[in-house]
């Protein structure tokens, strides 16, 4: 089972630069979860205790603004990370995330397990935090891209 997870993880940027052994350590704290269309991975304003990596299918990131209007902000597909801010700041969820496709498969990584692993192997912590920062940067570039300027 972990061998399959490691194979998938090698194709996810979040894990770029980790050794085979480090990937196996991470695979031990990655939990496979399945969601049907419309099922929520988590809700906005909940306390976040884990992040997710989309393995198959797509999820919709839905934001509700201050006047109660809800809108889809972005769709994330295979290989993308969602809910990662919980691992960075342990704050409340900034959006609701729901599965778009039937049998959307994700790997979840609990905050507590992740912190423990990073403390026991600082190199994993450094690489993962660097990759998380780069992923957040990519999402900002996606949000700010104006096709008319290309």
């Amino acid at each position: 089972m972990d061998a399959i997870k490691v194979k998938v993880m090698r194709r996810v940027e979040l894990f770029r630069g980790l050794t085979e052994q480090q990937l196996h350590s991470l695979a031990e704290i990655c939990y496979e979860e399945h969601f049907h269309t419309g099922a929520a991975l988590f809700e906005q304003n909940e306390v976040g205790d884990k992040m997710y990596i989309v393995r198959d299918g797509q999820v919709e990131v839905r934001v509700r603004d201050q006047d109660g209007t809800s809108y889809a902000a972005v769709y994330l597909g295979a290989g993308q990370v969602v809910g990662e801010m919980a691992l960075v700041d342990a704050g409340r969820r900034s959006a609701t995330v729901v599965a778009v496709d039937d049998d959307t498969v994700v790997y979840s990584i609990p905050h507590h397990d992740f912190t423990q692993l990073c403390q026991s192997d600082n190199a994993i912590g450094y690489v993962m935090m660097r990759n998380l920062a780069q992923d957040l940067s990519f999402k900002l570039r996606h949000r700010d891209f104006d096709p008319s300027e290309s």
Binding site: R11, V74, Q80, F138, R141, H142, P147
Partner: peptide
């Protein structure tokens, strides 16, 4: 090679997406 793609919809009314290809 893995292609991490930011898909942006013309017109900007529909949210785009990000996925690995």
């Amino acid at each position: 090679m893995i292609y991490k793609v930011s898909y942006v919809v013309q017109g900007g009314e529909y949210p785009g997406g990000i996925k690995n290809e």
